[in-house]
């Protein structure tokens, strides 16, 4: 009896490992947790897409805002565009675009075709500001409070679900 139990141990361990790996398979995603949550927005000075001036992070102090990183080259930005538009039109918070590594004419055409949901659009042609924000793909969105602290980050497209379950509750907590 004892011998049977001992010989079964490796088998049990094996199945335990299989179960563990199997469970982790569903859990695995490519989301890198941001170390910037709870910290101040990195400082930047960026030109605007449609105005001949630059803005810094200080210009956004005073009300909560959402920074949405996008590019006309990014397929999922197309996918999330209606959601960004709905959120911006709801008037619940200011939605700011960060046009990342994009050509002006491409970005302009994209917005003309689909509509421009943004309050203002910052341009990061080189990509340095995106690196400061820890961006590693588009789209990404940052919820920032009135004092310039990053409250939440969504990696990947905004959906009606993550707006309703993450962005809006976090925003409500701020007010």
């Amino acid at each position: 009896m004892k011998k049977i139990v001992i010989t079964l141990i490796p088998l049990a361990l094996f199945f335990g490992l299989v179960t563990l790996l199997f469970l982790n398979m569903g859990y695995h995603n490519e989301h890198v947790p941001s170390p910037l949550i709870g910290k101040s927005v990195p400082s930047f000075e960026l030109p605007l897409l449609y105005e001949d001036k630059t803005m810094t992070e200080q210009d956004f102090i005073g009300e909560p805002w959402l920074l949405n990183v996008w590019g006309s080259w990014c397929p999922n930005c197309l996918y999330e565009h209606p959601v960004v538009t709905d959120l911006a039109q709801s008037g619940k918070l200011k939605v700011v675009g960060l046009n990342w590594k994009d050509e002006f004419s491409d970005a302009d055409n994209w917005l003309k075709r689909l509509g421009n949901p943004y309050d203002v659009i910052l341009v990061d042609y080189v990509g340095n500001t995106a690196i400061d924000f820890g961006v590693y793909g588009a789209p990404e969105s940052f919820l920032i409070d009135a004092n310039g602290i990053i409250v939440h980050k969504i990696v990947g497209e905004l959906t009606p679900e993550n707006v309703a379950n993450e962005i809006l509750p976090k925003l409500a907590q701020l007010q």
């Binding site: 890198v32 947790p33 941001s34 170390p35 910037l36 400061d132 924000f133 820890g134 590693y136």
Partner: peptide, 9 residues
């Protein structure tokens, strides 16, 4: 790098 992307980087 770690400040921006976390230990994962």
């Amino acid at each position: 790098m770690v400040q921006r992307y976390g230990d994962f980087v």
